[in-house]
Design a protein around this nucleic acid. Structure first.
Lengths: 143, 143
DNA sequence: CTGCATCCTGCATGATACTG
DNA sequence: CAGTATCATGCAGGATGCAG
């Protein structure tokens, strides 16, 4: 967290680069679940368990944590109806709706290119064995 | 990897939902570094240490791992020039260039809304103390 | 310069059980 | 239904040293 004297000289490119704040925000939403939760909320409010079912694979705990994170960032609102049984709706804020474009772009890109990617992976993994002298051996395959 | 019988019934929304493959791809690129590396490569090839400097904060190890992951996914190409000292260029593939739009969208969104977000966070955190009976107490603030 | 190999650590995530 | 509280753990990620 030390300021470390960021030098935003003229040479910096218009967008990414040094900027820490941007980094932190992206880190936040680029975690394992946030993008998906946001995507699920794209067409209107959802209840807790609705999300739980739809995001598929998320644990209750992680859904709670993710939602709280998003709420904290001002990306979703939480509305409680003190009925019995209780009901809580989560909805995207205006700020978050600006995210929806890029996020859905990612999702659609992923869907369109998933075959290409799995195939690239297969090819790459094969090349590791036959590639002999290139010797990208064991360890770094892990990822 | 077990097929697990995904039920893409008609009721599923056009995009996200059950689809595991998409999930896996997004998990891959939505990690701590990939998005940034991709963003850095947006206007042409870069050398290893160029990236290292520009991504700022990334360790050598993580850069290597990230690049190999992206290479494996067929998102970047690796070109070695066996000069002395050696030189290695990384460049986005065509597939990856499709990602560039959404990714830069995210980055720009983050930049435009960073103040709003940090402020929302501050407000949220204050509300936790004064909010008394709401009692979102200790643990779940962590995130 | 580029990048492999280890060791080590903490945090993110999961599993499970309890509450209003 | 919508959380909260704990415990357990694996893997992401950092630090460091060596190698072609």
């Amino acid at each position: 967290m030390s300021p470390t004297h960021i030098d935003l000289t003229e040479t910096t490119k218009p967008t990414v680069d040094n900027c820490r704040a941007t980094r932190e925000i992206l880190d936040r939403i680029a975690d394992k679940w946030s993008l998906f939760v946001i995507a699920m909320l794209r067409d209107g409010p959802r209840r807790f368990n609705e999300l739980r079912r739809e995001v598929e694979g998320i644990s209750q705990r992680m859904l709670t944590l993710t939602l709280r994170g998003l709420e904290r960032d001002g990306l979703v609102t939480r509305t409680m109806y003190p009925t019995i049984p209780p009901r809580v709706d989560y909805e995207l804020t205006e700020v978050a709706k600006g995210l929806l474009g890029p996020v859905m772009g990612l999702v659609m890109w992923a869907e369109e290119n998933k075959e290409a990617i799995t195939q690239a992976q297969k090819q790459f993994d094969e090349g590791l064995e036959s590639g002999a002298s290139l010797a990208r051996t064991s360890f770094y395959q892990s990822r």
